[in-house]
Computed example of a mutant assay.
Amino acid sequence: MLLQGLKPRIFNRLNKFGACWVAELPMVLWNLRTTPNWAIGYTPFFMVYGSEAVLPTDLDYGAPRIRAYNEQGAKASHQDAMDQLDEAHDITLHHSAKYQQALRRYHNRWVRDRAFNIRDLVLRLVQSNKDRHKLSPP
Rank of each mutant, 00 (worst) to 15 (best):
K7F: 06
L14N: 04
K16F: 12
F17E: 13
G18V: 07
G18R: 11
C20G: 03
V22H: 08
L25Q: 14
P26H: 04
P26I: 02
M27H: 07
V28L: 01
L29V: 13
L32Y: 15
R33Y: 01
T34M: 01
T35L: 03
W38I: 12
G41E: 04
T43N: 00
M47Y: 03
Y49T: 03
S51A: 15
A53E: 08
V54I: 15
L55G: 02
P56S: 05
P56A: 00
D58F: 07
D60I: 13
G62C: 09
G62R: 09
P64A: 02
R67K: 14
A68E: 10
G73N: 15
G73S: 05
K75P: 00
K75E: 12
A76S: 06
S77Y: 03
Q79H: 07
A81H: 06
D86F: 11
D86C: 13
E87G: 02
A88D: 10
H89Q: 09
I91E: 14
T92K: 13
T92H: 00
Y99V: 05
Y99T: 10
A102T: 10
A102C: 11
R105T: 13
H107N: 11
N108T: 05
N108L: 11
R109V: 02
V111K: 14
V111T: 09
V111A: 14
R112A: 10
F116S: 01
N117D: 05
I118G: 06
I118A: 13
R119F: 06
R119K: 12
L125D: 08
V126P: 00
Q127L: 15
S128K: 01
N129A: 08
D131M: 04
